[in-house]
Design a protein around this nucleic acid. Structure first.
Length: 323
DNA sequence: TTCTCCCGCCATCTC
DNA sequence: GAGATGGCGGGAGAA
């Protein structure tokens, strides 16, 4: 399986630098697509970097975040184990438990009205605690952008705006069994770039790596080919009125793929309450360990929001049945 | 000007 | 000691 790609050039021979196609979100989507295809349970970092056409350093960025939600687990040096999307609910529950043990339950309860939405500034301030300076905040926010980029590509969160301040914020969507990496087809025509996307331009300095991959062209063998940055320029959207917005058909599709063995949205509605019980049983018997404190803490908050969402939907279901 | 986030340096860790 | 890992912040693109 080969995956190296070449870059589109203009008539003068200059190469396009497409920031979007190098984003962590796109890289994560491609990574998941590559290893979710089945049959692969061992992931070599060098191999992944080569296949995805990125530097090894970027693979660390993605893998570390995926590890925090249970999709992969470190096996040994340079090697990770693919655990798949089925592991996500369990990992989230573990993080939730951890969050409860720390102070985030207090935070969640006192902000219950807007618990499903948080700005990165707020998240950074929360994680840093008292006495942080602006430099630390900036650094933390940068890291949170990275993390949010990956979660966004998995549809675990979505970008929105805070209703009061109109500042950019992120809403927890949670794992609903059919998330999978976001696809360009999931996005509407843009007014502006969204988080994790960008516009083409020239930059010879940044032409080293190359990760533009069209996984559709040869799905069976996962052989990627070049995609055109121009086709991706309209991927952007924010303030989506619903979670499953559509995208221009001329755009290249990075997905979609649905994790094997997970249920659909229509199924899930009827099983909300029983799923919560299932997850709590899982959490009771299994407590994964996470070394990244920031991720752990942030997830403590998000998982709490996730549970609130489920409970709210379950309540509405009950009310509707009664009426 | 602010938001966004890619990029790679370099300190620390692991083998 | 060498290679692996990942924290960190510069700086550039876009709104």
């Amino acid at each position: 399986m080969s995956s190296f790609v070449s870059r589109e050039s203009d008539p003068n021979g200059r190469q396009f630098y497409c920031r979007k196609e190098k984003s962590l979100g796109v890289l994560c989507t491609n990574f998941l697509r590559l290893y979710d295809s089945g049959g692969v349970d061992s992931i070599g970092l060098d191999d992944a970097a080569a296949r995805l056409g990125v530097e090894r350093r970027r693979i660390y960025d993605v893998v570390n975040i995926l590890e925090s939600v249970g999709v992969v687990a470190r096996k040994q040096k340079n090697r990770y184990l693919w655990k798949g999307f089925e592991a996500i609910p369990r990992a989230l529950e573990g993080l939730k438990e951890e969050g409860f043990r720390k102070n985030f339950s207090a935070f969640a309860s006192c902000n219950s009205a807007k618990v499903d939405m948080i700005t990165l500034d707020n998240a950074a301030a929360l994680l840093l605690g008292d006495g942080h300076n602006s430099t630390a905040m900036r650094t933390k926010v940068r890291r949170l952008y990275d993390i949010a980029n990956v979660f966004s590509s998995m549809n675990l969160i979505e970008k929105t705006h805070h209703p009061d301040s109109r500042k950019p914020a992120f809403r927890w969507l949670g794992w609903r069994g059919n998330n999978g990496p976001v696809t360009s087809l999931d996005l509407k025509q843009p007014n502006k770039r969204i988080f994790g996307t960008d516009i083409s331009n020239y930059n010879m300095k940044r032409n080293k790596g190359d990760s533009s991959i069209d996984w559709n062209s040869n799905q069976k063998e996962n052989v990627p080919v070049i995609i055109r940055c121009k086709d991706l320029e309209n991927d952007c959207n924010e303030n989506k009125p619903d979670q499953h917005t559509k995208h221009s058909s001329k755009c290249v599709e990075f997905g979609p793929f649905t994790p094997v063995g997970v249920q659909t949205v229509s199924d899930s509605k009827n099983k909300i309450v029983s799923r919560i019980q299932d997850l709590e049983r899982l959490a009771f018997t299994y407590h994964p360990q996470y070394n990244n404190q920031v991720l752990s803490d942030l997830f403590g908050h998000y998982v709490e929001a996730w549970k609130s969402w489920y409970v709210e939907v379950a309540m509405k279901e009950k009310t509707q049945k009664r009426s």
